[in-house]
Amino acid sequence: MGFCVFNKLNIINLKNNYFKSYLVKSKSSKHLLNIFRNNLNRLIQTFAKKYLVLVLLLFIYVIFSAFYLSKPKTIILFFIPCFGKEKLVIDKNYYSEIISDSISIQSLRFYVSGIYLLKNGKSIYQTKNQCNLIDISKKLRIEINTKSELDFDCIQFNIGVDSSKQVSGVMGGDLDPMNGMYWTWQSGYINFKLEGKSNICNTRNNIFQFHIGGYQSPNNTIQKIMLPVKNETNIIIRFDIKNFLSQIDLKNVNEVVSPSYKSVQISKQYANIFSIE
């Protein structure tokens, strides 16, 4: 109904305009044109009445197809743990020239949150509320589902759990406190956890432990990382543990397990071991 009324009004308007601009034209041609217009008017009205449902369906179809034409796209981030040039494998012995001794890694996990895709320094896509636990023995990839094809040249993400998630109570999935990435005696997520062995560590079983976290200033350890990337579906991000350990005096610094100034320093050190393959 509303549809028809709308049409009628529109046509009356057109008629008025026509009168104004063609006032000088001859009566007969005006008359002819008027007949034509009135017929057209009636034609549209009957068509609209008869095929109202059809027209509506067409309308809906156009809108929906517009949405579906922009196909959703999945971008996958692959995190590749490395030890220098080699791929890092759990419990394997690696040699480090810097400490002139061997090193092995037992566990390595960290949170990745706040992923942005950027073009020319401007954010064009951001993941909502996503916080992923990367674990060398379980999960090394993150899928990003964008609504449409994107053109980007840079990726940005945080190593760590953002502070709003730190104080909002218990959550499931990757943020479930059962994952061993939550401090129980003092609330807060462990953002980055690395445990391994080296003879250079004068500790029980020569173990070194880095449980890096803390979300309150001045001991906030969340680190933002920006890497230039090619516009591809698979983004391969290497992180080099040899590089990280070479920045640390492992003989003296081998157990950092609660939020402190030292944790902040260490978080800055692992922030620069990420690179794009």
Binding site: S168, G169, P177
Partner: peptide, 11 residues
């Protein structure tokens, strides 16, 4: 030391 009731029981 605990910032949320949910997390308290973990301690």
């Amino acid at each position: 030391a605990i910032n949320h009731l949910d997390m308290q029981a973990l301690a």
